[in-house]
Write a protein that binds this DNA or RNA. Structure first.
Lengths: 119, 119
DNA sequence: TCGTATACGGAAAATTTTTTCGGTATTCTG
DNA sequence: CAGAATACCGAAAAAATTTTCCGTATACGA
């Protein structure tokens, strides 16, 4: 495997289980990108999340495939092509992603005022 | 400050903002513990989350105070006593915590079968 | 006086995640 | 033939988080 996650999915507590599936830096954003069920190539995902390095998207997509949140379809073409698509299990997390998105929008100003350093 | 978080609250995207407030290992659990609005001493929180070291609870509680999710009240007594309590802002995250808790309960079996290693 | 109890924090080690860099493979185009 | 295009991965470096260990302060009770 490309990169072995050190901390496995947490089976000790339901809350930690859910968190452990999405807490890596970009996983929640990846689910948000894939929400429409449209299959996307990793390069498209990268265009939407330009701050993430392609390598880390690769690593996190692989983990999400392993966890069953996303599928990967590899087309035996040259140059190679593969597409990622959200699964039903992944979709079932979208209400949580939506709630976090909305919370972030609703409370953005508080944190902007608190933490945005003017330079 | 006790320990300086290296990655500050993320102001670039509402979803990342919300995630950045709760993605540390125990913050979601701490919010869950404090949900009833009862003030708790750090030793009580530790008793409820025995897998977390007292030090990391200390660090994460301090960050949550800084972020406005929790308040700390210090009683000028000896031996010292202080209590943590969830704020209104912290409470506004509880529906998200609840949704994650429920998702984890609903999908626990999938991951238990997938990842639970029998020894 | 000495040990206990309590909350906390400094510092370094250990662990984990993310970044950086560079390489593989293959077909088509110029 | 050289280079582009694409997805991917190994390895090491860098960065971030968590753990471990130990010390502070102080009043009380034995």
């Amino acid at each position: 495997m490309a990169y072995e996650k050190k901390i496995p999915v947490d089976l000790d507590c339901p809350l930690r289980l859910t968190m452990s599936l999405i807490e890596s830096k970009w996983k929640s954003c990846i689910l948000d990108e894939l929400r429409s069920s449209k299959a996307m190539r990793s390069s498209e995902i990268h265009k939407s999340l330009p701050e993430a390095t392609p390598r880390v998207l690769d690593i996190q997509l692989k983990e999400m495939v392993e966890d069953g949140l996303v599928t990967q379809t590899i087309f035996p073409e040259l140059p190679p092509r593969s597409e990622y698509q959200i699964t039903e299990l992944g979709k079932s997390l979208l209400p949580i992603i939506d709630a976090m998105l909305k919370w972030g929008e609703d409370h953005f100003e508080i944190f902007k005022q608190k933490y945005d350093r003017k330079e």
